[in-house]
Amino acid sequence: MSTLRVTVERLTIHEHPNADALELAQVGLYRAVVAKGAYRTGDFALYVPEQAVLPEELVAELGLTGKLAGSAANRVKAIRLRGELSQGVVCRPRALDGVDLARARADGTDFAAELGIVKWVPPVPVSMSGDVEAAPDLLPWIDIENLKRYPEIFTGGEPVTVTEKVHGTACCLTYSAEDERVQVTSKGLGAQRLALVEDAKNLYWRAVRGHGVARVAAEIAGELGASRVGVYGEVFGDGVQDLGYGADSRRGDPAYAVFDVAVEVGGLVRWLAPEELTKVLDGRLPVVPTLFSGPYDARQVMELAEGRETLSGRAVHLREGVVVRPLSDRYSSAVGGRAIAKVVSGAYLTRKGGTEYE
């Protein structure tokens, strides 16, 4: 789940192909449906992204009563309006009256707190929860921003790898070589520096045990001379999320696939580049499918995000999306951190009965 920021953006307006009274306001590579004539190309407006939860008074002010998602009808969710995918809400609430919008955009001002907008946090099933303990030495996973919001992360022709984004729950394991300690957590708990107490019934510990992840992490530490190793994998299958990939994680070991590895050597933490990750794992753990390696092309990446999943080998359902990273790990000034981004498929965003547990 990416970081929630509610910012002013410069709009590009496009014609809606199927509705005379509607237009499409583009922010980055996102498009949101707006009333025709409400904005012109070059205008500045507030962009409220998906998974934002709005206070009741703001919902009413924007004329969105009964139109948003969730039991309280207050959560922004991608929808299709007259056949066009609409992601996020473009608006100019009264709270921004008198605000220099051009300056706010240049400064990157985040209006979430001022407007009472918060990030949606899905409920956690019992199988994914458990007792926790402080874990300051965890190597936590990072939030991946959406390429549509930050299209400048990559440059055309840059060598990249595109992997399939798997709809499961992220399992983050940290192995400390000094005392051979193993700590397991979810992405959400890891961000709080909390680890799950070992429990044979817990989904994450079941995956770690069943696939020998701690053993592989210890082997990697020895091979690379690392003091800490972080192995990040997706736990998936029926009983985890609504997309199961033909795997049953309710009986036996949960299905699991690695998507990232970090190592600390000499006090410095680095992420293994895609080719190095494959070489280091050497078949010891399953990995997420690679869909493409080569020169970056934004249009190609958007196309790869759609279609059917390849993880099962049987294309049993739609694809969640893709993750893009450079062949050589680097810093991105666009996001102020690691150069990595995701694109989520339109079919996934607008499916019925979806779950989003972390």
Results as ranks from 00 to 15, higher is better:
255 A>C: 13
284 R>W: 02
271 W>C: 06
321 G>P: 06
329 D>A: 13
232 Y>D: 12
245 Y>R: 07
260 D>P: 00
231 V>W: 11
265 V>L: 08
292 F>L: 10
333 S>I: 09
331 Y>V: 05
253 D>I: 15
319 R>H: 03
312 S>P: 04
339 A>L: 06
238 D>G: 15
270 R>S: 14
332 S>M: 05
340 I>A: 15
278 T>A: 08
319 R>E: 09
266 G>H: 04
263 V>L: 05
273 A>D: 15
256 Y>G: 13
330 R>F: 02
337 G>L: 03
339 A>Q: 02
313 G>T: 03
275 E>F: 06
314 R>P: 00
306 E>Y: 04
303 E>N: 13
279 K>I: 00
275 E>W: 06
273 A>G: 12
236 F>E: 08
252 G>N: 10
334 A>Q: 08
269 V>G: 08
272 L>S: 00
261 V>K: 00
244 G>Y: 13
266 G>D: 00
318 L>S: 04
251 R>L: 12
316 V>N: 14
321 G>K: 11
302 M>H: 12
300 Q>G: 14
237 G>H: 06
281 L>R: 05
274 P>M: 10
316 V>E: 15
273 A>K: 03
331 Y>R: 09
316 V>T: 15
341 A>R: 10
248 D>F: 14
286 P>G: 08
256 Y>W: 15
315 A>G: 11
311 L>W: 03
229 V>C: 05
247 A>I: 06
295 P>Q: 09
245 Y>P: 01
323 V>D: 01
327 L>V: 05
330 R>C: 01
325 R>P: 01
234 E>G: 07
326 P>N: 08
226 A>E: 02
271 W>I: 06
288 V>C: 05
274 P>Y: 05
223 E>M: 12
343 V>I: 13
340 I>P: 00
242 D>I: 00
333 S>P: 02
285 L>H: 12
302 M>T: 08
240 V>I: 14
292 F>M: 12
308 R>E: 09
298 A>Y: 12
271 W>Q: 10
227 S>P: 02
289 P>W: 04
265 V>N: 02
291 L>P: 09
327 L>A: 14
335 V>K: 01
310 T>F: 12
306 E>P: 09
307 G>H: 03
306 E>H: 04
299 R>Y: 07
296 Y>R: 08
272 L>R: 01
317 H>Q: 15
284 R>P: 12
240 V>M: 14
305 A>Y: 09
236 F>T: 06
233 G>C: 10
293 S>D: 05
278 T>R: 03
240 V>A: 11
287 V>E: 03
333 S>T: 14
339 A>R: 03
253 D>G: 05
267 G>M: 09
312 S>H: 04
259 F>S: 07
252 G>I: 08
311 L>K: 00
237 G>C: 11
252 G>C: 12
305 A>M: 07
301 V>Y: 05
247 A>L: 13
307 G>L: 09
315 A>W: 06
298 A>N: 00
264 E>I: 07
310 T>C: 07
276 E>Q: 11
231 V>I: 13
310 T>E: 15
258 V>A: 14
320 E>H: 07
273 A>P: 04
230 G>P: 13
260 D>V: 08
320 E>Q: 14
255 A>K: 09
237 G>Y: 07
